[in-house]
Design a protein around this nucleic acid. Structure first.
Lengths: 289, 289
DNA sequence: ATAATAGTGTCTTTCAGACAGTATAGT
DNA sequence: ACTATACTGTCTGAAAGACACTATTAT
């Protein structure tokens, strides 16, 4: 039997098949209102969630996403969903992880791949999702509650709890996750479990935690932050964005030294601040190499 | 309609479903024969491939893998396949990427997730795969052929060709890949295409390239190399393993300085080398924190 | 004048790169 | 004695940390 013949007789349905979906973490930076004419507006990291209009988890909040269509490549599904929810076409988009645990969806066997998208909040238009579900930006707050190192027979494990709080106006979603890093016989393994999930659908708390982790790593190692920034920005703004994502404060002098080649000074300045104006900068497209 | 009722009436087959497989990159380090009583044996990076006994790509070489079973979580599929092919149960295993391009498998719509496993070659037993396909270790050689930076309207792109050569005895597999990194409007995007593939099945050249890239990054940033090492090793051996994976030579003094806390000296030494014996070390399980 | 932020200069510390110099088994 | 590897010491230079000091606007 030759290959053509083999393929003609091949019955793809002989193995059971899962349903397959794509879920997207859309991140943006938001500015809160200025408290007083002098102070800078505070920045926060936002994540887009959709209120589910259907069972399961009806009324709870979930990541935007949907089923992969039969003649659609999975990256295209992610781009399509992003476009549908935010109207943004050109954004940083990256595949993160594929989730295939048993029982992760009460509807049956469904495997999902999560993606991360970084958008400039100003470019987004999230008024109406195509399926009339409500979409909202949630402020992300992440905290490692208690970290503990436990010795085991062949090594040790580090166990920590993570508190994830998402707020939008008076809506507060909260999840507690347990993260266990096991180091035994030189081998590292990670486990993450949902301890508590208040109004967050499916295993999406895990996806969010994983996404935040990926975002932090990427921000430390690459220049993707600029995908979250507007065309012109001050160095202080840029630093604040780094600080919010990394969850630590940076030294101004060192930060600026590092950025000298990556950004370009413009001749424009901020106005109407009750203090010294700040020079606006833009990303240096020639950077790298 | 309440949730229970909804789920009872839910027809999971209303969306078309893909078949789903898992493919594993099993890496190990091999020692070649000593050329002369004085010289150290050369090390090389090896990848496990299986000769396909069935269409499609019959007779060509593919990554070990298989279909995910209906009541099996995908990480478990990866562990099961690893065990079946190598008889190794405890190894470093990490999910890498999910491949869902159209037309990637001539049998139809099949999505695959690739994993990377790091094993100590001595622990492996690859005599007979369960499906009687031939399994062999291939020496991996990777070379960036020509790299070119091209300016575009809104940024630039870096284009390079990658030559991948896999050898096992007198079998030589070869693939040429084209990698394009596009930087436009602060956004980075990557594309990879197979230009030529000699006897490597499916889109596995892409998976291998992705896997080698992930391996390099992980080796630079974490301590996973120790998963590839035997219990006791010399620092020179360890350095050679780093050098082979990273594709560059390291400075001995700096390398040892960095490792002082990560390894523990033992009182054992190598013997029968035509030169000064080398102290054997082991991984420090207490390391980190 | 004052509050609040913007921005620079420079001393210290840390760590990687470079390389010379010493040590030692087996033939 | 010689070869090939094993290992240490130290100089140098780049970059990060720390922190003091100066600059500038709206009220």
């Amino acid at each position: 039997m030759d290959e053509r013949e083999y393929l003609e007789n091949y019955d793809i349905s002989k193995y059971e098949r899962p349903s397959f979906t794509v879920d997207i973490l859309v991140f943006a930076i938001a500015n809160e209102k200025r408290e007083n004419y002098r102070r800078l507006s505070k920045k926060s990291l936002r994540l887009l969630l959709i209120k589910r209009g259907e069972h399961p988890f009806k009324g709870q909040w979930a990541l935007p996403g949907g089923f992969v269509r039969a003649n659609e490549n999975i990256d295209a599904t992610a781009r399509r969903e992003l476009k549908e929810e935010t109207n943004v076409e050109h954004a940083y988009l990256e595949q993160l992880h594929t989730w295939g645990d048993l029982g992760r969806d009460p509807r049956g066997w469904i495997i999902s791949t999560s993606y991360m998208a970084l958008v400039n909040g100003d470019d987004c238009n999230i008024e109406s999702g195509d399926d009339a579900d409500e979409a909202r930006w949630f402020e992300v707050n992440y905290k490692v509650i208690n970290e503990e190192k436990v010795a085991t027979d062949n090594g040790y494990r580090i166990q920590s709890n993570i508190e994830l709080v998402l707020t939008a106006g008076d809506i507060e979603l909260k999840a507690i996750l347990e993260k266990i890093s096991i180091y035994e016989n030189h081998i590292e393994r990670e486990e993450i479990n949902i301890i508590e999930s208040r109004n967050i659908a499916f295993d999406h708390p895990k996806m969010i935690e994983y996404g935040l982790d990926s975002l932090r790593k990427k921000v430390e190692q690459t220049d993707i932050v600029f995908s979250l920034m507007p065309e012109l920005f001050t160095l202080t703004e840029l630093q604040k964005v780094y600080e919010i994502i990394l969850g630590k404060s940076l030294l101004m002098a060192a930060f600026r030294r590092k950025l000298t080649d990556i950004v370009i000074e413009t001749e424009e300045f901020t106005k109407d601040a009750g203090h010294r104006p700040s020079r606006l900068h833009r990303f240096n497209n020639e950077w790298r190499f």
